[in-house]
Nucleic acid binder design. Structure first.
Length: 464
RNA sequence: GGCGGCGUAGCCAAGUGGUAAGGCAGCGGUCUGCAAAAUCGCUAUCAUCGGUUCAAAUCCGGUCGCCGCCUCCA
C-alpha cells in the first residue's frame, strides 16, 4: 500500500512523493516554552510522532525539525496584550531565559514519558535571529514589506494567493473580533515581521536589526529555521489545526515571498484538538490538564498515548476522566494479554496469517495514519487462534515500532519485603487448604496495592 | 457575518455507497477452592426529516444540536 496523507493545502488524500526519492524533510511547529504543555498540546506531538514512525516504517529516511519558541510574542500585532514569556517570568519571578529553559526541559520530559521520538533537529528561535533577519531582508528586497509606526510589516496584498491554505476570503474576515486593530497596517491581514516599538522597554530579549533594536514577529521563525535545516523547499509541515488560518497562512506568504518559488511546502498535515466537554483546552483560559496531573492520579503516561491512538488525528478527541479510565484499563489489559503470550511461546502459522496481518497493518497506517484501525487489528491478531504466540509477539513487536506503546516491555516493579512475606504466608496457608487464612492474606496484599494471581506454576504478584 | 468540522451502543471511538471495527464498562460461560488474570460468547441500524440509488451511517437538500477558527493558541 502506498503512503498517502491528507493534505490541508489540497483538501485531499494524496500519495506521498518526496522531493528527493527515499528521503523526507519534515518540519513540525513546536511549543512556546512559557508554561507547561497541556494534554491537548501533547496530543499534537503524539500525532507528529506517529507520522514520523509511519514514514520511517516505509523505509524513508527522515529529517525532522522542530522548533522551540522561546521568544516572547505579544497577543496581537498592535503592541497590545501581554508578552507571554514576560508574563511567565513575572508570574514566577524569574528571567525570561530561565522561564524558557525550565519549560523547555519540562517539555522534553513530557515527550520522553510519552515515548515520543525526538526530532533529528530541535532548534530554538533565539539561536536563529540572524536567519530570521536575513529572510526578512529578502522579503523587503522583494517588495513585500513596509515600515510603519516603528515596526516592519508584511504586505499581504502583494501575494495574489494569500490565504490559500485556509481558503480565507480576506474580505469576509471579521478583523478585530477579539483583538485590537493595529492602525499601522495597510491591510487587515498584514502582520509584523520585526518589532522595534514595544511597550516593554525593559525587555530582556532584544536584538539589533536593520530596522532597529527589537525582536522578530512570530511567524518568521519557522520559515527561517526550516529553510536553514531543510532547504528552501521541503516535503511536510505539521502543526495543530489552529495554525491553519494565521500562523501557517502567514508562513507560506513569507516564505514564498522570500524564496520566490512555489510551493514552499508540498504537504501540510494538521492535528485536530483534544477537547473537553466544554470545548478545547486552552492555556490562556487558565485551567488545563498536564501530563503530570495524569501521572499524579496514577495513570501511566502511555495510557494517555493509548487514548490518543484510539482516535484518528483529524478528528476531535473528547477527553473525559471516564475516557481516560477506559484507556488506562484497555492499555493494562493489552499488556497483560501480551505478557501472557510471553509465558508460553509456541510457533505456528498454518494459514499465512502473519503476512496477512502485516499487509493489513501497512494498509491502515499508510492510509493517512489510520492508527485506530491498526490498533483494532492488533487486538484481532492477538485473539487469532491460527497464529502461535511466538508469531503474535513478533508481529506485536513490529506494530509497536509505530504505536510506540512499549507493549513488550515489562516494567520491573520492586515488590516490598512485607508484601513478599505476606505472599509466602498466603501460599503456605493455601497449600494447607486453609482458604480463610489465605484469602485474608490476599486481601492484605491487595490493600498494599498488589494483586495475587494464581496459575499452574504457582502464584505471581502484580502491582495494581 | 465568513470559513472548517462534528452528531455511530452507558463511555472513548473506526467505518464515508454494499448491508455496523476495536477498546472500556456491563451480562453470561470456561478456568479457579473462591477470586484475580486469561479465555469464549452476548449487547447499536448510525441526531432528525426528505431526496438520489437495486443498495446510504456513508451521496444531496432541509431542520435541530455541538465544536473549532477569523491575528495568544497544539
Amino acid at each position: 500500500m502506498k503512503l498517502r496523507f491528507y493534505n490541508t493545502l489540497t483538501q485531499k488524500k494524496e500519495e506521498f512523493e518526496p522531493i528527493e526519492k527515499g528521503r523526507a524533510g519534515m518540519y513540525s511547529c513546536g511549543p512556546t516554552v512559557y508554561n507547561f504543555a497541556h494534554i491537548g498540546n501533547l496530543r499534537t506531538y503524539i500525532f507528529n510522532d506517529l507520522l514520523r514512525r509511519v514514514i520511517l516504517e516505509n523505509g524513508i529516511k527522515l529529517d525532522h525539525v522542530m522548533n522551540i519558541t522561546d521568544v516572547g510574542h505579544l497577543t496581537s500585532d498592535a503592541d497590545e496584550g501581554e508578552d507571554k514569556m514576560l508574563a511567565g517570568a513575572k508570574r514566577e519571578n524569574k528571567s525570561v531565559w530561565e522561564i524558557a529553559k525550565f519549560y523547555e526541559e519540562s517539555f522534553f520530559n513530557d515527550i520522553s514519558l510519552l515515548n515520543i521520538q525526538k526530532p533529528e533537529i530541535l532548534c530554538r528561535a533565539t539561536d536563529h535571529i540572524d536567519d530570521m533577519i536575513n529572510m526578512e531582508k529578502k522579503i523587503e528586497d522583494n517588495g513585500c514589506a513596509y515600515f510603519a509606526g516603528g515596526n516592519l510589516y508584511f504586505d499581504t496584498s502583494k501575494i495574489d494567493d494569500y490565504g490559500k491554505l485556509a481558503r480565507l476570503k480576506v474580505e469576509d474576515l471579521q478583523y478585530g473580533a477579539r483583538t485590537e486593530i493595529d492602525e499601522n497596517k495597510r491591510n487587515n491581514s498584514d502582520f509584523v515581521l520585526w518589532f522595534t516599538k514595544s511597550k516593554f522597554g525593559d525587555q530582556d530579549m532584544k536584538w539589533d536589526s536593520p530596522w532597529g533594536t527589537g525582536y522578530p514577529g512570530w511567524h518568521i521563525e519557522c520559515c527561517a529555521m526550516s529553510s536553514r535545516y531543510l532547504g528552501e523547499q521541503f516535503d511536510i509541515h505539521t502543526g495543530g489545526i489552529d495554525h491553519i488560518p494565521v500562523h501557517h497562512t502567514n508562513e507560506i506568504a513569507q516564505a514564498e515571498a522570500a524564496i520566490g518559488k512555489k510551493p514552499w511546502v508540498k504537504y501540510w498535515l494538521h492535528g485536530e484538538f483534544l477537547v473537553m466537554d466544554k470545548g478545547k483546552m486552552s492555556k490562556s483560559s487558565g485551567e488545563f490538564l498536564t501530563l503530570k496531573l495524569l501521572v499524579d492520579k496514577g495513570y501511566d503516561p502511555l495510557a494517555f498515548r493509548f487514548l490518543c491512538l484510539g482516535a484518528h488525528y483529524r478528528k476531535q478527541l473528547m477527553f473525559s476522566w471516564e475516557a481516560m479510565e477506559g484507556a488506562s484499563q484497555g492499555y493494562k489489559n493489552l499488556k497483560n494479554r501480551i505478557s501472557e503470550l510471553m509465558k508460553n511461546e509456541q510457533s505456528y502459522d498454518g494459514d499465512k496469517k502473519r503476512s496477512y496481518y502485516l499487509e493489513r497493518f501497512s494498509g491502515f497506517i499508510n492510509d493517512d495514519l489510520n492508527i485506530p484501525q491498526a490498533l483494532a487489528l492488533l487486538n484481532d491478531m492477538i485473539k487469532d487462534n491460527k497464529l502461535g504466540s511466538k508469531e503474535k509477539l513478533d508481529i506485536t513487536k513490529h506494530f509497536d515500532q509505530v504505536f510506540g506503546l512499549k507493549l513488550l516491555e515489562k516494567e520491573e516493579t520492586d515488590i516490598p519485603e512485607d508484601v513478599l512475606a505476606l505472599a509466602d504466608k498466603r501460599e503456605k496457608a493455601r497449600g494447607e487448604k486453609n482458604y480463610t487464612l489465605s484469602d485474608k492474606y490476599r486481601d492484605m496484599i491487595r490493600e498494599k496495592g498488589f494483586e495475587i494471581r494464581d496459575s499452574k506454576d504457582g502464584q505471581t504478584i502484580e502491582k495494581l
